Amino acid sequence: MIQDYSNLIRRIEDRYNPDQNRLVEQRMFSDLSTEGRDVAKYVKMAMSAVDDHYTAITKEAGEVVKKHLKDEQQYMNVTYRYQGSVMTNTHIKGASDIDLLTFTNKFVSTEIFEVRKILKSPYSSAYDSYDLTKLRNYADNFSLYTGDFLQDLRELRASNESVMRKWYDECDIEKAKAVHIYNKNLKRDVDIVTACWQDKINFVVKEEEKYRGVSIYNKKTNSTEPSSCPFLAIENINNRSAATNGRLKQMIRFLKNVRSDSDVKIELTSFEINAVCYSIPVDSYRNTYYLDMVYLLWHYMYNLLKDENQLLQIKSVDGTEYVFQKNRDKIAELRKLKDEVWQIYQKLNN
């Protein structure tokens, strides 16, 4: 971490208020005068949310893209949803991008084999009789899709590319998992992702969309990626942060800003940072003063790195996968982030 915190403050100001909007500056940064030292100001800013003015523009860019697609895909039976940090208000750029998921509804991936396995030994399952009835009805009414699901996804991806190239000069169709466009009027990037639904067991039982799996199509490999539940992750972060007076999101933003401001490259994504923060026991920070959360974060990461077994048990926010088991190289990156937070804590206590 560069120790010139006045410079780091300017970096955050540039990220959060790229247009140097005076009203945004007044709303976001006017109360910093109550903090005496630059390091405390930096922490406060790093935990703050991007102003609604910028977030609204980002969402507008997504809506413009969605309208273009809906107008030209109205006969293709497509569903549109958003995912990503903008939906949890944990993004750290005023000019943030947004992910628009486009789903083909020609088919739905399922966990039918897992359902049938549960029904073969219902007494040893974790489901009650009411849930088992739902699973049995689902299995009884299941019919295998006879079409070519990869062809369906290729067609949707091709349509996304065609529509975006028609409307946007800056359109990258070479990315494996998304079409990337830049809206020059709104000065925003949008990623248009081709995907399909997966009826996970929890979705069958609970019948809420947040439990539905999402499998992203990879153009380069002509295959689908392992599914996750992004809408459950969004709800989990929003609900837990609301229950802690916004502290969960403050911690996430802080670590993302520290990562971005470090003079060492820290290759942790929002996915890993979200998971680490979400795994912290709520009672340990529910009423914690924001400056004290710096030590809390350092101490938690320090203990995780001392106990690799505990670290390897950390799951994604949606609970679908173990975060560090699949990519142990990320452990070294977490150590770098922990060291950056330690330097900030030391500076606060000098």
Rank of each mutant, 00 (worst) to 15 (best):
S262K: 09
L268Q: 08
K187D: 14
K219E: 11
N218P: 09
F203S: 13
F203E: 11
P226C: 10
V190A: 04
S227P: 02
N236K: 11
V214D: 08
K187S: 12
A195T: 08
A195L: 08
F271H: 09
Q250C: 02
N257H: 03
R212Q: 15
N218I: 05
R188P: 06
S215C: 13
L255E: 12
V258L: 02
Y217Q: 07
R247S: 05
N202I: 00
V264E: 06
Y217T: 05
E209S: 13
T269K: 11
V193R: 01
N239V: 14
I216S: 00
L186M: 09
R212T: 15
A242I: 07
N202P: 02
E208N: 13
K249S: 03
R188L: 05
S215H: 14
R212I: 13
G246V: 10
Y217P: 04
K265D: 13
K200P: 09
S223Y: 12
K256H: 09
W197N: 14
K206V: 04
F271E: 05
S227D: 09
N245P: 06
A233R: 10
L268S: 04
K265P: 00
S270F: 07
P226G: 04
I237G: 05
V264M: 06
K210P: 13
Y217E: 04
S223D: 15
R259T: 10
L186V: 11
S260R: 09
V214I: 12
T221W: 05
R247E: 05
V264H: 07
D263L: 08
S262Q: 06
K256A: 04
A233E: 12
R188V: 11
D191A: 03
K210V: 15
K249M: 00
L186D: 04
L186C: 08
C196Y: 04
P230K: 10
S228A: 15
I237K: 00
S241R: 03
C229S: 13
N257W: 02
A242E: 12
E225D: 15
D191E: 11
K249R: 12
L268F: 02
N222F: 08
F254S: 01
K265G: 01
K219D: 02
G246N: 07
A233P: 05
Q250Y: 00
R247M: 08
F231M: 12
I237Q: 00
A242H: 11
T269H: 07
F254H: 10
K200Q: 14
D189V: 05
I201H: 04
I201S: 01
N257I: 05
L248N: 03
V205T: 14
N257L: 01
N222V: 13
K249Q: 12
N202D: 15
C196G: 12
N236Y: 03
K206S: 03
Q250I: 00
D263A: 13
C229H: 12
S228C: 09
C196E: 11
L268D: 07
K187E: 14
K220S: 14
S228N: 15
T194W: 01
Y211Q: 06
L255Q: 13
A233M: 04
V258P: 00
K265Y: 01
L248D: 04
P230R: 10
C229P: 02
C196Q: 11
N236I: 01
D191H: 07
A243L: 12
I234F: 00
D261E: 04
F254Q: 07
K206T: 09
D189C: 00
